[in-house]
Structures are given as structure tokens and as C-alpha cells.
Design a protein around this nucleic acid. Structure first.
Lengths: 211, 211
DNA sequence: CCGTAACCTGAATCGCCTTTCAGGTTAGTG
DNA sequence: CACTAACCTGAAAGGCGATTCAGGTTACGG
């Protein structure tokens, strides 16, 4: 039966397992991620794993939860500094891509969640979309974007981010074993933002005011 | 060693295995899809599997290839009937959603391919995007859409389709075990198309001409 | 230095899955 | 009907990985 650590040592051990699990899940996938591999990566005895986690699925869920919290924090943080809503959207997207470029684990892990833990998958997407929805509603009410069904558009934005991010992270940067965080092609990022901004622009823009 | 069937009987058996594999992969995932389950679903002896397939991964790749061919055919077929490019885009999207609504296997299987068979994953997305790219280039040259980096936009469209489709197919229609093909909400589909069409619209539309 | 609560360990158990193979069945031909 | 190429079968071998557990280690207050 798994327990919560009671001392600083235990807390550190648990954290090490979590970090190791993120790496192992991301590099070989859930299926091939054995508890042995995770504990070895963490430099910890096999049996110790079961002191802190119920099993493989349990630690997977926690890894997803953790990544989700971190990516949303990165996005909110970045958006906070922006002036208007459009700027905030742009900053949020950029933060999203930067985060996923630095943590390929996000994609690689989330995509497997469908069977491993459908609830975690839904939670992940829903939470991120909810962040968008709030921002979009405010922008819509402020007249910065056209009247729209913000839910649908928020999911569309999520889809764009996920697909382009996947393409950049997984394929632009060599193979799965790949090395450091890849650069996000600036020109493509701008093209994406143009597409998004036009898709959301108010009916009658400021007469000739382009991007 | 796996062989190609030499008679009508063998051909039928092989096809049954392929169909059963699609169902099993879609319903329990690659990991939990044992050869036993596949052969049982097909109503065929366990050993027979190895007459026609090298192993689990081999049949998985074929399932992906098959689904990919079918969804692209559905899209092309639908787009063919359309008048202009915008109409074709709309028809293609609708066909894509209809297909995935009727074959949830597409999502459920593709999402696992990342680790099971990265090549198959990339092949799947790339082929669909290539279809878009051709259409977009033609539309751009014909002045029906603004000048743009069609590759980036094509991937963005792919992302929108995948995310909204996933949402509709996986979540609007009860649980994973879910029943018949769910309806695609018409209002949401239209909102999505508005977003896409505006994102691609030429710089100076026909003076006040809306959608 | 002693005691003990918390922590750590990895060999062994248990169960499941892939793959093989020796032998049976089917269907078409002369 | 005899023959044979193609096809089908499922018990069993061989492996692998999740999880347990009996016993060792660490840290620290008294």
C-alpha cells in the first residue's frame, strides 16, 4: 500500500521517482516503461517504488497532472505581461510552444493517455481550453474579436497548437531519441498567428488595419 | 514466416484478421490487444495469425495504412463534387468528420502509433496534409485565398480537424465503449468553418462581402 | 550509545503473452 | 476415390514484467 512520505528524505525519493517516470514515459512510452526502468533511472531500489505509488498507472496520472500544471503556469505567466488580448494570445501560444519544445514529454505522454488514463487526457485538454475560453470571452466582450462560439474556437486553437507543436518538436528535431530543445521556426509561427488572428478578427477592422 | 494467401479462402481469412485487429486495437488499445483477442474476434485459430502476419506490430501498421487510405478516399471523393475551392475544403472537412465519427478507430489507433510505429504516424498525417497542400496551393494561385505558407496552414487545419473530431467522437458520445456514430453538431461545424475561412480569406474581400 | 520509526532493498512469485510446431482439415484435380 | 497443396489449429515452450515481502539501513531524540 502506498503512503505519503513523512520525512524530507522520503519526499525527495518520491520526487525523484516522479521525475524519472516522466523521462522514461517520454522516451520509451508507457508500455515499455517498466517499474525497473523507472527505479533504475531514479537510482532507487525496485521495491521502494511501491512505498509511494500504487502502480504504473498511478504514477502516470501524477506525471500528467504535473506536466499540465506546469504548462498552464508557463502560459498564464507569459500572458500576464501582455497588453491587450491579442498580445496575450500570442504570448500564451509562444509560451506553450516553448514549454513543449523544452519538454517533449508533454506530447509523447499525453498522446498515450487515451488508453492508459482517459480521464487524465480529458482533464489535460479541458483545463488548457478553459484558460483560452476565459480570455476569449473577455476579448469578445471588449470587442477585440468578433462574436463567436468561444468554446469551439478554443478547441480549434488547442488543436492548432498541438499539431504544429508536435510537428516541430517530434519531427524537426531528429529522431525520438532527439537532443536539445528545437527552435520554433519564426516564420511559421507568424503565419500561424496571422491565420488565428484573422480567424478571430472583428467584422469591420479599422479600415485597412492589417495584422 | 508470414505469407501471402494463395487462394480465395486464405484471402478472406487474412481480411477477417485485419478487420478484427482494427476493432480490437480501437477498443482496448495496442498494449492490451493480444493476438489471442484478435483471433478470437475474427473467429479464427490462434496459430493462423502467424500464417499471414509477422506479429502484432506488422498487423498494426497495416491497419493504420488501411484506415489512412480510406479516410483520404472519403475526403477526395467528397471534395470532387464541390464547385470552388472553399466549397471543396468544406466538403472535405465534413467527409473527414463523418468518417471519423463512423470509425472512431482512426483516432484511437493513430494516437497510439507514436510509440508503436512512429513511421506510420508520420505517414498518416503527412499524406492527409499533402492532400490539403495541393488544394490550398491551387486556391492561392487562383486568388481564392490570400498568399500564405500553405504548409503551415495545412498542418493547422489538420490540427483543428483532429482536435474537434476527437472531442466530438470521444467525448460527446458517452464513454469509450460507446455505441453508434455520434452526430456532429452543425452549429459548431459552422463556427469552425467560419474561423477557417476567415483565416484564409484574401486581403481585400469584395467590399463588405461577409462569409 | 540505545531505541525506534521511517525508509530502503532486490530476489522470488505469479500471471500473462508472443510465438512455434506437429498434426489435422479442406478443396480441387486426375 | 486417391492425392496433394494450401490452409487451419491450439497446446505448450519460453520470456518478461508487475508486485510482494522478509529483512537490512538511516536518522535522530533522549
Amino acid at each position: 500500500m502506498s503512503t505519503t512520505p513523512r520525512t524530507a528524505r522520503g519526499t525527495r525519493t518520491r520526487a525523484r521517482l516522479l521525475e524519472a517516470a516522466e523521462q522514461v514515459f517520454a522516451s520509451v512510452g508507457y508500455h515499455d516503461a517498466s517499474i525497473v526502468k523507472i527505479t533504475e533511472q531514479a537510482g532507487i531500489g525496485l521495491g521502494t517504488f511501491y512505498l509511494y505509488f500504487e502502480g504504473k498507472q498511478a504514477i502516470f496520472d501524477e506525471v500528467v497532472e504535473d506536466l499540465n500544471r506546469r504548462v498552464r503556469q508557463a502560459m498564464t505567466e507569459a500572458a500576464k505581461a501582455a497588453g491587450n488580448r491579442i498580445e496575450a494570445e500570442r504570448a500564451g501560444f509562444r509560451a506553450f510552444f516553448r514549454f513543449t519544445a523544452e519538454h517533449p514529454a508533454l506530447y509523447r505522454i499525453i498522446r498515450q493517455a487515451e488508453f492508459v488514463s482517459p480521464g487524465a487526457l480529458r482533464m489535460h485538454y479541458t483545463r488548457i481550453v478553459n484558460g483560452y475560453v476565459e480570455g476569449l470571452k473577455a476579448a469578445r466582450d471588449a470587442g477585440e474579436i468578433r462574436p463567436m462560439d468561444v468554446d469551439t474556437v478554443a478547441w480549434a486553437l488547442m488543436g492548432i497548437g498541438e499539431m504544429l507543436g508536435m510537428r516541430w518538436v517530434l519531427w524537426h528535431a531528429g529522431g525520438p531519441g532527439g537532443g536539445a530543445a528545437p527552435e520554433i521556426p519564426e516564420a511559421e509561427f507568424e503565419e500561424m498567428m496571422r491565420f488565428i488572428e484573422r480567424g478571430m478578427a472583428p467584422e469591420a477592422p479599422e479600415h485597412g488595419g492589417g495584422a
